[in-house]
């Protein structure tokens, strides 16, 4: 495995996680969490766990994003704390 690629993916993973916590726009937080899931799935596939990566990409990046968007659509879009 190319270790530069792996380090870049880890850095992007951390950046996505911090951004999802930092932003006040909940839709943006959901989108950032989707990016986080996609990067995590890429890392899992690079490490050889293709089955786990497939589950992560289907659930983490696909379905939970939709369910979070559905939940956000029931309340106010911006968090206040």
């Amino acid at each position: 495995m190319i270790w530069q690629l792996e380090m870049a993916l880890y850095a992007l993973l951390l950046a996505a996680a911090v951004l999802a916590l930092w932003t006040r726009d909940l839709i943006a937080a959901v989108a950032t969490l989707t990016i986080y899931s996609f990067l995590a799935a890429t890392l899992m596939a690079l490490m050889g766990a293709v089955d786990v990566a497939l589950t992560e990409i289907a659930l983490g990046a696909g379905v939970t994003g939709v369910l979070f968007i559905g939940a956000v659509s029931l309340m106010k879009r911006r968090s206040v704390d």
Partner: peptide
């Protein structure tokens, strides 16, 4: 890799 759960989710 794959299976029933992943296929259903996709």
């Amino acid at each position: 890799p794959g299976g029933g759960f992943q296929a259903g989710a996709i």
